[in-house]
Computed example of a mutant assay.
Amino acid sequence: MKWLEVMAEQAELHGQRVVAETLGVSRTVVSQVINGRYPGDLGRIQRLVEGAYLNRTVMCPVLGEIRLNECLANQSNTRTTGNPLRIKLYRACRSGCEHSSLDQVQDFKVQGIAGRRNEYDADGTIRRLTIQAGDDKCELIALLKTELKHLGIKYNRVMKERE
Rank of each mutant, 00 (worst) to 15 (best):
A11R: 06
H14D: 03
G15V: 02
V18H: 02
V19M: 03
G24E: 07
R27M: 09
R27V: 05
R27S: 06
R27D: 08
R27P: 15
V30A: 00
V33F: 11
N35Q: 05
R37K: 11
Y38W: 03
Q46D: 13
Q46R: 15
Q46N: 11
L48I: 10
V49Q: 01
T57E: 09
M59D: 14
C60K: 06
C60P: 02
G64C: 06
I66S: 12
R67I: 00
L68A: 06
E70K: 09
C71K: 12
A73E: 15
N74C: 02
Q75V: 11
Q75S: 11
S76K: 13
N77V: 12
R79E: 06
G82A: 13
N83E: 14
P84G: 07
L85Q: 13
L85N: 00
Y90C: 03
H99W: 03
H99V: 00
H99P: 01
L102V: 03
L102C: 00
D103Y: 05
Q104T: 12
V105N: 04
F108D: 11
G112E: 08
A114I: 03
R116I: 04
N118T: 09
E119N: 02
D123L: 09
G124V: 05
T125R: 14
T125V: 05
R128A: 15
G134Y: 10
D135H: 06
L140K: 03
L140H: 01
L140Q: 00
E147W: 15
H150K: 08
I153Y: 00
I153P: 01
Y155R: 14
